Amino acid sequence: MIRVGIIGCGRISDLHAQAYLEHPEAVITAVCDPVAENRDTRGAAWGVAGQARHADYRDLLARDDVDMVEILVPHHLHAQVALDAMDAGKHVSLQKPMSTSLADADAMIARAAGRDVVFKVFENFVFYPPVQRAKELVEAGEIGEIRGIRLKSNPGWSPTAWEVPAAASAWRIDPEQCGGGPLVFDDGHHKFAIAWHFLGLADRVHAFIGTSYDGLIDAPSLVSWTHPDGAVGSLEVVHSPELKLDTVHYAQDDRVEITGTKGVIWVTRGHGRMLNVAPVVLHRDGVTTGYDDMPTGWETSFIRSGRHFVDALLNGTPPALTGEQGREVLAFALAAQESARTGRAATPVRAPAER
């Protein structure tokens, strides 16, 4: 039985917790949040005893009934909390992006190795069933060799979207705490992770990162990149404030187009559902085939990601993403930020051992 401590009980923790609540060999034994309402509401919902609900994460780390921690705090706090957890001998699942700098990322990777604990960077989109199906189709050779990937992120509005507390929104639009903007750096991690998942780390990134009229949202934006094998990719982020979306999570939707030498695959949804078509569509040999035999709720990606980590701990297998893999995605995202600042193409900085 893997005993889980959750550090940070904000909005997104509801999705993370589902993985452990539904796993037969995991149990949430402790929670932490500086806001009493957060830790008590979630703690009660998850069956955590009152004495195991903490305001200070260090009190949670001192418990001997916690094997691993799920860290869900603002980005600028990731490194310190994760390092302290590793020093306490806890396995770590750290919400993406793993940090706001590569120096912090390298420090966490080294500390995990030195303390002999398992370190995972939590990324759910590579566990999203339509993305997993697209990956299976690619690996089966359905579209030949990938030559390009195009991702579209489109926030709008929705009467059914979940409510995000003001405090959670505030730190996400503060570059000092978030590490970048809420769409290209924060949510953009999902898109860079998808591109990395299919094609590996880019070798050249060019970005234009715009801003909304009020300066709060980093859109419209366009990021393009190349890969060592010559494949290309792009991420387009456009905020459409009057676009009504079908979702029960963030008021946003996502699309992915993967083009190969003999076919094309589309993933037609992500956070929500904009298009009334199959979640995965394949075109090859003049024939278009839709695949809809899979769950498409965004929450499923969180459940599969969390379950995968529990299974990795139980079986002694590597998690996804490992710290090293999470660092590659972070390098990808930071290269886009650098390019936007300088107006020149940037090269993602590889780990010291790879240079």
Rank of each mutant, 00 (worst) to 15 (best):
V248T: 15
R172C: 04
E236T: 13
V138T: 14
S224D: 01
Q177A: 01
Q132A: 08
R172Q: 07
L243C: 06
S224P: 00
G233M: 09
L201Q: 11
A167P: 05
W225V: 00
E139W: 08
P130H: 00
E242C: 12
H190T: 02
P159H: 11
P220R: 06
S212P: 14
E145C: 04
V184Y: 06
T226S: 15
V121A: 09
H206N: 04
L201M: 15
L243A: 05
R172M: 05
S212H: 14
W162M: 14
N154L: 15
K191H: 04
G148M: 14
G230F: 13
D174N: 11
G180T: 02
S158L: 00
P182C: 13
W171D: 04
A166C: 11
R255L: 12
F122N: 04
T247F: 03
A166N: 07
D186E: 05
S234K: 15
Y128H: 12
K191A: 04
P155A: 14
P228A: 03
V131W: 02
Y250G: 07
D214F: 08
L151C: 06
E163V: 05
A170Y: 03
V248G: 13
G179A: 08
E142Q: 07
V164Y: 00
F185L: 12
P220H: 08
Y213K: 09
V184F: 14
I149A: 15
N124I: 09
R150C: 10
L137Q: 02
R255S: 13
V126L: 09
W157G: 02
E163H: 01
R133C: 08
R133H: 10
L183E: 11
Y213N: 07
Q132C: 07
W225K: 00
H190E: 05
V131C: 03
W157A: 09
V205H: 02
V131R: 02
L201N: 14
F185T: 08
R172H: 03
A202D: 10
G141P: 00
I173K: 07
S221W: 03
F208L: 09
V256Y: 11
F122A: 06
S234A: 15
H206K: 08
F122H: 00
S234E: 15
P155R: 13
T211I: 12
D253T: 03
L151G: 04
L222P: 00
